[in-house]
Design a protein around this nucleic acid. Structure first.
Lengths: 199, 199
DNA sequence: ACTGCAATACGGACCGTCTCGTTTCTTTTG
DNA sequence: CAAAAGAAACGAGACGGTCCGTATTGCAGT
């Protein structure tokens, strides 16, 4: 009797799991977020609604899991930042990439949906910080610490604060659509941050 | 003769308008935002649903109008920032007040609801910038220009960028609940900003 | 024949529209 | 200058529709 977990039992589980997450991702990226329904996800995934509710308690959780699965795929690459020895150059590269990414409509829709959910759900916000934000921040802080050792950044600087000053303006401008996310803008944020926290 | 618009024709309009906005405000501040429904607003205001739909096209528009009405009441006061002659002191006062305001649960709920809506509705975001954000930013920029004349701020500084660096970290920390909004934190944002844009 | 899942039926909440009968204001008229 | 008639806006709530989250069914694989 398959009293605990059947072995190929889990293969099916995994297949439907992927189908659901992939369908959720596709829908969030192409539709207005209000139009993304659990029923639509189930239909797109070729899955019964019950199969979804068996695994996730809410739409927010699905969307979050879908995004999380994305970042877990790209895990190996994205945990390290470039380190050419010049902090300004490296940060500008990263900030320009971030600005460009946020300007991509499908990605914009996905991140906007995620932000909508985490802004209104403290538990999901905590999970977001733990599973997504913190690992990325740690990678950035590693690069910053290297810069501190190289004398390019105030050794006393609060690195969390540095990251906020660097990223939050970009994030706010994106969220409120209060201005364009140009490469020049990305560069100026790096310049400002380094002027504030420079050695 | 009153041949165009009836003058006290508008009296009942105004009364129901106020009742609706006040009910919307109360509900948003006390309930989880998903539980705020148009039907609940109508019931609380003692008003038919049609009276709401006659005036506003969506729940977002009602919530926005409710907040806007608040800020229009306090119009006379809030358009000017203190100017003691010392920029750091004045900004710290304002930033501490902002941090404290965002820590007030009812206000938190209201602003969170507003941000949820404007993040997903470009048209509403534009109205938000025009009617709420820009006037406040102008008041802040007036104070910053005064500081530029007093030699306390780089005369070449991009004031929009200054405001972003000053406020966006606070906003992001609040939105993502990634840290406490203490007076010390408010102060440190002012310090960082002045180090970046100082003379 | 048993089991796990897709499909779908179901009651409930809320949407946005609509139709009522009533209230409130404007205009007409004796 | 009332009092009556008319028009406009209103509170209430019925209505069909969508989506939610749960319960049931019937088919496919083993």
């Amino acid at each position: 009797m398959t009293y605990e977990k059947g072995p190929d039992h889990s293969r099916r589980k995994e297949r439907s799991r992927q189908a659901i997450l992939s369908a959720a991702r596709a829908l969030v990226m192409e539709e207005a977020y209000e139009k993304v329904t659990v029923e639509a996800i189930a239909a797109r995934a070729g899955v019964g609604k019950q199969t979804i509710y068996r695994r996730w308690p809410s739409k927010s959780a699905i969307v979050f899991a879908a995004l999380l699965a994305l970042s877990e795929d790209a895990d190996g690459q994205s945990v390290t930042l470039p380190d050419t020895g010049d902090l300004a150059t490296d940060l500008k590269l990263v900030m320009r990439a971030t600005a460009h990414e946020f300007s991509d409509p499908p990605f914009d829709k996905l991140i906007r949906a995620l932000n909508t959910e985490i802004a209104n759900d403290p538990a999901l916000a905590a999970e977001y910080r733990e599973k997504l934000a913190q690992p990325l921040d740690e990678a950035k802080k590693t690069r910053l610490r290297s810069a501190q050792r190289a004398g390019q950044l105030d050794p006393e600087a609060d690195l969390d604060l540095v990251l906020e000053v660097l990223y939050a303006p970009l994030f706010q401008r994106w969220l409120h659509r209060s201005g364009p996310l140009t490469p020049a803008y990305a560069d100026s944020l790096v310049d400002v941050t380094l002027r504030a926290f420079g050695p």
